[in-house]
Amino acid sequence: MDYFLELFLGGLTRGSIYALIALGYTMVYGIIELINFAHGEIYMIGAFTALIAASVLAIMGFGPVPILFLAMLLAILYSCAYGYTLEKIAYKPLRHSNRLAPLISAIGMSIFFQNYVLLAQTSDFLPFPSLLPEVPFLEPYAYIIRSSEIFIILTTLVVMVLLSLLIRFTRIGKAMRATAQDRTMAMLLGVDVNRVISVTFVIGSAMAAIGGVLIASHIGQINFYIGFIAGIKAFTAAVLGGIGSIPGAVLGSLVLGWTESFATGYISSDYEDVFAFGFLVLILIFRPAGLLGKTAAQKV
């Protein structure tokens, strides 16, 4: 039973990690039906910014908690700037072209960002400081769940709730929903669609940055390539849950996390990815739109 609990919590942590990145994919897709393949790289840039910020702040003599918050704030700001610029440079000019064009552009930006960080920073793995505090009274239970894992799960929960509230109750949230439903109609009714899209990218990037900081400090190392694998998995999770759906992204991520964790724990980690993607195929056979995705009627 202990073992089951350990795997369950491990899968939950892994799923929460995926969810923070998957939310960005699903939001962008919901609004402009674009799969933003450079999203994983925004996550990686967030982690790098936090590493640089944390190193500088540590030299300046800040304590661990201010470092965590300041580094995370800087990472969010920096990633948001990248996300905003990315959309303006790579996607906006292509908005009215063939659907494949922005997709190619996204892949190109992903490669560009990886190589940019590779050249500007290093190709080596870098140690990432453990920014998340270890809570002393939880230490005896560390073999089941570490405090950093609890921190990741809680953060994902909070981010998800805030995001749902934002979309449900604010003006910009309403505008986002309107744009997602019918961009042309929203435009006719006076919604500033360009602004909505920019805000979507900024919010998605902010979440990716939070994810980057938490995960890097959980694992303890980063390099320029981490965004790619995390991005692929998060994208899978978003599709699994129903791309375009916010609760779907979170549910898909958790399901993916648990699938991997239990497959490793009870069968073999050699086939971890086989189970993850096999499960994706199964879900898509029975629910082509994903777990919570709506089968949208074709717009005629």
Partner: peptide, 20 residues
């Protein structure tokens, strides 16, 4: 006797398995 996936975000499941 197990293989792990290089680059995965987290190896906690394999670590638990080693412990068990």
């Amino acid at each position: 006797f197990e293989g792990v996936t290089p680059g995965a975000v987290d190896y906690s499941a394999v670590v638990q398995k080693i412990r068990k």
